[in-house]
Simulated scan of single mutants.
Amino acid sequence: MSARIDSELAALYADFPRLDLTDMPSVRAFEGKIAAGSRPSTEGGISEQAIDLEVAGRAVSAVLFRHDEGSAHALLVHVHGGGFVLGSATDPHTRAWCARTARETGAAVLAVDYRLAPEHPYPAGHDDCHAATIWSSAHREELGVMADAPIILHGQSAGGAIAAGVALRLRDDGHDVLAGLILDCPVVDDRLESASMQRSAGGPVWTIEEATVSWRHYLARNEGPVPSYAAPGRATAFAGLPPTLITINLVDALRDEALELARRMALDEVDVDLRMYAGSLHGSALVGMDVAAGAAINRDQYLAIAAAVKAHKQIREREEQR
């Protein structure tokens, strides 16, 4: 891709590690070093609490980020990225992003530590995030959130695929628990046929080579057609999904599949808001949250959270007037 990259982002990404996803022992060793150096966020007024959600006889790990005082007016269930094989609720970037989002929006942020591939391929991570979302809807007050607060599901990168798949499953099962869906630079389609993906070989951050291995790890033990809950780009219908914000980086192998997802959502009458950011690379909202280009993406996501809270309040008021 020849598009101009924002200079501040380019400097941040210059030393960004590129991992060989075919060598998972090395990936796990790198991840261990990162985890050892991770510390709680220093965002003012935000507490961090590790919790285990007891779901169907098993525990799903998560980390809750929230203001120290008062009940939060919204709950953001966050699904981190990492190509289905990396990341955690307390890796340094995710930790900082969740705490900052809680501080800026007043929402509580529940980051799900879902099981990772290849050790735990689909549907393990999907099931964890689906269970955590349903559990959260029934335990708001335990999380320090108002009993009638809206729940917004948020996914970044591979977490976007999981979040979108969870939203589809909740819709299909009749669980009307989501007030909003936010997908940041989402992974969408395992077929890897889009123009931006096909032209990404050798490019920055995330390429068709890494995407191919990532999907292979995630779908390792599944035979037959790939389900849309795993790869939401394969879904045939999107009607009934909650209001959705999709943020896209211009310089990103995943750009075009996210554009196509937004187009198909709009055709199915989903209230979808699509934003694409010039000069940005994959993951800019996470890695670049302290520079102008990344902050702009996050501001739009904060506004989407505020809009979901406002719409939820208006719905509640109309119901009370009946």
Score class of each variant (00 low, 15 high):
residue 224 G to F: 07
residue 178 L to F: 10
residue 3 A to L: 12
residue 112 V to Y: 08
residue 102 A to E: 07
residue 3 A to H: 13
residue 263 R to D: 14
residue 262 A to V: 10
residue 216 R to Y: 00
residue 52 D to C: 04
residue 129 C to E: 09
residue 93 H to G: 00
residue 262 A to Q: 05
residue 178 L to V: 10
residue 24 M to Y: 03
residue 249 N to L: 00
residue 138 A to E: 14
residue 3 A to R: 11
residue 46 I to S: 05
residue 276 M to A: 12
residue 288 G to Q: 08
residue 82 G to R: 09
residue 177 V to M: 08
residue 9 L to V: 10
residue 225 P to W: 08
residue 25 P to F: 07
residue 28 R to A: 09
residue 187 V to R: 05
residue 122 Y to L: 05
residue 213 V to K: 06
residue 312 H to T: 02
residue 72 A to G: 04
residue 282 H to V: 09
residue 96 A to K: 12
residue 49 Q to Y: 01
residue 249 N to E: 15
residue 317 E to A: 14
residue 150 P to C: 12
residue 168 L to E: 03
residue 140 R to W: 04
residue 16 F to N: 08
residue 64 L to S: 09
residue 109 V to A: 09
residue 72 A to E: 09
residue 225 P to G: 08
residue 298 N to M: 13
residue 103 R to G: 13
residue 117 A to R: 08
residue 99 A to N: 03
residue 237 A to S: 15
residue 27 V to L: 08
residue 318 R to F: 02
residue 68 D to N: 12
residue 164 A to N: 07
residue 266 A to Y: 07
residue 56 A to T: 12
residue 207 T to L: 06
residue 234 R to Y: 02
residue 58 R to F: 02
residue 56 A to G: 01
residue 314 Q to G: 00
residue 164 A to T: 15
residue 51 I to Q: 08
residue 209 E to K: 07
residue 297 I to S: 04
residue 227 P to I: 11
residue 160 G to C: 10
residue 175 H to M: 08
residue 49 Q to W: 05
residue 132 A to S: 13
residue 232 P to Y: 04
residue 133 T to N: 05
residue 319 E to S: 08
residue 263 R to F: 12
residue 194 S to Q: 03
residue 255 R to Q: 08
residue 100 R to W: 02
residue 232 P to E: 04
residue 126 H to W: 14
residue 314 Q to R: 15
residue 48 E to M: 13
residue 248 I to S: 06
residue 123 P to D: 12
residue 136 S to T: 04
residue 49 Q to H: 14
residue 191 R to V: 01
residue 127 D to F: 03
residue 28 R to L: 12
residue 129 C to K: 07
residue 7 S to V: 14
residue 320 E to C: 00
residue 137 S to G: 11
residue 257 E to P: 04
residue 118 P to A: 11
residue 194 S to G: 03
residue 250 L to T: 15
residue 259 L to T: 06
residue 278 A to W: 00
residue 87 G to K: 09
residue 62 A to W: 11
residue 67 H to M: 01
residue 229 Y to R: 13
residue 167 A to G: 06
residue 298 N to K: 06
residue 104 E to Q: 14
residue 182 I to G: 02
residue 272 V to T: 13
residue 58 R to C: 02
residue 229 Y to L: 02
residue 81 G to A: 11
residue 165 G to Y: 03
residue 277 Y to L: 11
residue 151 I to P: 02
residue 242 P to I: 10
residue 149 A to P: 10
residue 160 G to K: 10
residue 133 T to G: 06
residue 249 N to T: 12
residue 222 N to V: 05
residue 263 R to T: 14
residue 139 H to T: 07
residue 233 G to F: 08
residue 74 A to F: 09
residue 169 R to C: 04
residue 101 T to P: 00
residue 94 T to P: 01
residue 210 E to F: 01
residue 12 L to D: 04
residue 53 L to M: 15
residue 175 H to E: 15
residue 106 G to N: 06
residue 104 E to L: 13
residue 25 P to R: 06
residue 284 S to R: 04
residue 209 E to Y: 01
residue 64 L to W: 10
residue 254 L to D: 03
residue 201 A to G: 05
residue 239 A to R: 14
residue 168 L to V: 07
residue 62 A to Y: 10
residue 231 A to P: 02
residue 268 D to N: 14
residue 269 E to C: 08
residue 256 D to L: 10
residue 126 H to Y: 15
residue 133 T to H: 06
residue 266 A to L: 13
residue 265 M to Q: 14
residue 298 N to F: 00
residue 154 H to E: 11
residue 303 L to G: 01
residue 219 L to M: 08
residue 297 I to L: 15
residue 222 N to F: 01
residue 24 M to C: 05
residue 239 A to Y: 06
residue 225 P to N: 09
residue 122 Y to I: 06
